[in-house]
């Protein structure tokens, strides 16, 4: 069965009330969505809550899936949008400003690194990034969106996306040297 037919099969079976089909869809995509959610939210706890909310949305909206893209792409887009809504809403509630972004981003020389950056260290450092530059960094450097796409998703100018990614890298550099 090709990917398109497999997607159609999962959708038809889920709509018919086959719980195994939805579980199969969850198992296939949960790790990617959970990883994205943890990184966008900056915390595993929030990532777990987001994972549940995203798959509830998938369940609710599966009937409206038109098949214009692969099911996995559709789930992923839905997840990105949900994560962005969450981060925006959290920022509004917390009234969190990004004035601290200017710290650690100066052009003062840093000593060269003596060891390569470990993935686990980078994961932890990403969690420390302020909202705003973290989303831009995760979307651009981790998820592979270009700046035009990041700008569209975050509803900011393309230049702002570049500036946010620059600041995120500079802050990460500071965190990883400490």
């Amino acid at each position: 069965m090709n990917a398109e037919a497999a997607d159609a099969d999962i959708i038809a079976r889920t709509k018919a009330g086959d719980a195994d089909a939805f579980e199969a869809l969850y198992r296939r995509h949960a790790a990617r969505i959970y990883t994205l959610a943890c990184r966008m939210a900056g915390s595993a706890d929030d990532g777990e809550d987001l994972l549940q909310e995203i798959f509830l949305q998938v369940y609710r909206k599966l009937g409206s899936f038109k098949g214009d893209a692969a099911l996995g792409t559709w789930v992923y887009r839905l997840a990105v949008n949900h994560c962005l809504d969450y981060v925006r809403s959290r920022r509004a509630k917390m009234n969190k400003l990004t004035e601290t972004l200017d710290a650690d981003t100066s052009f003062e020389p840093h000593a060269p690194r003596e060891t390569p950056i470990a993935r686990l260290d980078l994961e932890r450092a990403i969690e420390r990034l302020p909202d705003g530059c973290r989303e831009a960094f995760v979307l651009h450097d981790v998820e592979g969106f270009d700046h035009k796409e990041v700008a569209g998703l975050l509803e900011i100018a393309e230049g702002t996306s570049k500036s946010q990614v620059f600041k995120a890298r500079a802050k990460l550099r500071g965190y990883l040297k400490k």
């Binding site: 949960a30 790790a31 959970y34 595993a44 993935r119 980078l122 994961e123 981790v142 550099r173």
Partner: peptide, 20 residues
């Protein structure tokens, strides 16, 4: 700054998936 940013970008693109 450029060297470190390039390394961060490279490592970021190779991060592992996490199992929920």
């Amino acid at each position: 700054l450029v060297d470190d940013s390039r390394e961060i970008k490279t490592v970021a693109a190779s991060l592992d998936l996490r199992e929920p």
